[in-house]
């Protein structure tokens, strides 16, 4: 590997890329949860066996979620360009990338939240019913707290998936490490640079995954 290509400017760009990547990832995850968490909760509560059954609503919501999940991210990136311009004012850069990231990640997060909440023991929910808990109390005081360890693992998966998407958005000038990898590795044939960015991405994924697992385990009172 020829280290001379790693000029101070490039190193600075990579450093900046890391920051942009983290910003896009975390900000998108946060916004995607703002949408995905309530949708996930609704998917569970309005199901046939949920605390507030509403089958037709559940069917429609499920359909929309599936529809959005079936659009490949790279296509969504382009499809939402007009909308991105409307919201952010530009289609280039990390903030602009947040828009398709959120749209793409929210339904995925909704399904993960749904699956975490479904793991909550039906017997515990029944016990809460027997004490006269309202549906909101059951969601808020039983389902979410009982599912917290699983929700945290889910969020680690969400973060790492979104991180992958940010790299993909590099192709359309999304900013972050993805853009660096594309600009250097793809357009200028500097594979070394691309390799370094990939390594950095791998590292960030590992950190988030490990962090998620540890927080989840530390908070899980089922473990002795």
């Amino acid at each position: 590997m020829d280290l001379s290509i790693f000029t101070p400017e490039l190193l600075k760009a990579i450093g900046w890329g890391i920051i942009e990547t983290l910003y896009m990832t975390l900000f998108s995850t946060l916004l995607a949860y703002v949408i995905g968490l309530p949708v996930g909760i609704l998917l569970v509560t309005t199901a046939k066996d949920g605390v507030t059954p509403l089958p037709w609503f559940n069917a429609i919501l499920g359909f929309i979620v599936n529809l959005m999940r079936s659009i490949p991210f790279i296509i969504l990136l382009i499809l939402v360009l007009p909308f991105t311009r409307l919201v952010v004012g530009t289609t280039i850069g990390s903030t602009a990338t947040v828009v398709p990231l959120v749209i793409s990640a929210a339904p995925f997060i909704a399904r993960m939240v749904e699956s975490s909440l479904r793991e909550v023991d039906a017997g515990v929910i029944e016990a809460a019913h027997s004490m006269g808990a309202t549906p909101i109390q059951i969601v808020w005081k039983v389902m979410l707290p009982e599912a917290t360890p699983s929700l945290i693992i889910g969020s680690a998966i969400a973060v790492t998936t979104i991180l992958g998407y940010t790299a993909m958005s590099g192709f359309v000038g999304g900013g972050g490490l993805g853009t660096i990898a594309v600009n250097y590795g793809y357009y200028r044939y500097k594979t070394d640079v691309m390799l370094v960015t990939v390594l950095l991405l791998v590292l960030i994924v590992q950190v988030f995954q490990e962090l998620g697992m540890r927080i989840s385990l530390a908070g899980d009172k089922r473990a002795r």
Binding site: S130, G132, E146, K221, R222
Partner: peptide, 23 residues
């Protein structure tokens, strides 16, 4: 009204059904 009435009827189960994340 039913929810309030249920407070007068305690229930226990075979599988205990305790909240695992609470003391």
């Amino acid at each position: 009204q039913l929810r309030i009435r249920r407070r007068s009827m305690g229930m226990i189960f075979q599988q205990f059904n305790l909240l695992m994340q609470r003391t």
